[in-house]
């Protein structure tokens, strides 16, 4: 078990990188997922079809395949995803601006994939609001956007927050794939480095990696439980 102490800096570095991609991917997925959700509940049929197509594709494709597409199709199209070198953001998240594009590719794949689930979590919240609320808003003359903004969304987020949290937890665990797609030094890739290159026993290393993921996921889960309890009281 001494590997945990001796190589603490490797674990910590992996943890930091995984945390970075998860924070960025969560932000991206929440934004894109919200856009797709609005498309899916829009009164305009072509927009609705677009949203549904998006969810159908990305919810049903393995993340591994989405990552392959990001890592191979984008370069084939001549893009190194340089649009993600966002000023200011790339100072905090330095990997965004490195010349090796795999961090950016992996981020795109995680965002595209997770957004489909975010969309469905948001939609389940919208569906939990009684249809009479939206009807009353429409009967007053509120437009679709006003209806969402002033009536439906303020009530739906409560029902969305717990499923959303589960989606983000799943995303954190899914991020373990990025090490296999050329992102050097994330938490899961730590295993390769320590067992392969440096000859440490696998099990202690795996325990260290597990602890790293649990540090990110367990508090998130506990927070969700708290929110759920508070809501259960409020609902009475």
């Amino acid at each position: 078990m001494s590997v945990l102490v001796d190589k603490f800096d490797v674990f910590a570095g992996g943890f930091w990188l995984t945390l970075q991609i998860c924070v960025l991917a969560a932000i991206g997925a929440l934004i894109l997922g919200a856009v797709v959700a609005v498309l899916r509940i829009s009164p305009v049929p072509p927009l609705r079809a677009l949203g549904t197509a998006y969810v159908t594709i990305f919810r049903n494709m393995p993340l591994t395949v989405v990552m392959f597409f990001a890592a191979f199709a984008l370069p084939a199209l001549g893009s190194n995803a340089d649009f993600l070198r966002i000023p200011v953001l790339d100072v905090v998240f330095t990997r965004l601006s490195t010349d090796l594009p795999y961090f950016r590719f992996a981020l795109i794949a995680l965002v595209l994939y997770t957004a489909a689930f975010v969309c469905e979590a948001l939609r389940s919240g919208v569906n939990a609001v009684s249809p009479g609320q939206a009807e009353a808003a429409r009967s007053l003359g509120l437009t679709f956007g006003q209806n969402l903004r002033y009536v439906v969304l303020p009530q739906s987020w409560k029902a969305s927050i717990v499923p959303l949290g589960s989606v983000i937890i799943a995303m954190i665990k899914n991020s373990a794939l990025i090490g296999f797609f050329g992102v050097v030094g994330d938490l899961s890739a730590t295993a390769d480095q320590l067992t392969g290159a440096e000859g440490y026993a696998f099990i202690p290393v795996a325990i260290g990696i597990s602890i790293g993921y649990l540090i990110m996921t367990v508090p998130l889960g506990a927070l969700l439980d708290r929110i759920e309890q508070r809501q259960a009281v409020a609902a009475r």
Partner: peptide, 11 residues
């Protein structure tokens, strides 16, 4: 419009 189930905005 006035509905059977009132439909006042709950929030």
């Amino acid at each position: 419009m006035v509905f059977q189930s009132f439909n006042l905005f709950a929030h």
